[in-house]
Design a protein around this nucleic acid. Structure first.
Length: 109
DNA sequence: CGATTTTGACCAGCGC
DNA sequence: GCGCTGGTCAAAATCG
């Protein structure tokens, strides 16, 4: 997990703020998407082998300060619910918002 | 040591 | 036909 602080300085949001959810993901790629304002999209995959669930994190095209999380596929294992100490209430709430945005934005622009 | 993360390159599909 | 983008994989490096 790289002890690298993902740019948590003031509020410049240099890197994408990945919210914590009930599942664990491993980043397998990062690409710069020009469609969202020359920002970079983060690709996450479920850590489980039997799990084909995938997650993509990108900035909202209209909300450069908001992160949109797209969930693809479904999990074959139970939710690896992280300890409450690991999950931030804010992150969880945000994750929920992202999920909602995903459905709304699901129709693309 | 094991685990995880990061970057680059390659490929494919599509548009004009 | 060419260019461009998006998506995934591999390897390497680093952390606890």
């Amino acid at each position: 997990m790289s002890g690298e602080v993902q740019g948590i300085d003031d509020e410049k949001v240099p890197a994408i703020v990945v919210p914590k959810d009930e599942y664990q993901w491993n980043k397998y790629g990062q690409k710069l998407i020009k469609r969202i304002g020359n920002k970079h999209r983060s690709y996450f995959r479920c850590k489980k082998k039997d799990c084909g669930a995938k997650k993509k994190v990108e900035w909202a095209p209209s909300n450069p300060s908001t992160v949109r999380v797209l969930y693809e596929g479904n999990h074959n294992h139970q939710c690896a619910r992280i300890d409450s100490d690991e999950v931030d209430e804010d992150a969880m709430i945000q994750a929920n918002q992202y999920d909602l945005a995903t459905q709304i934005f699901g129709s693309r622009n």
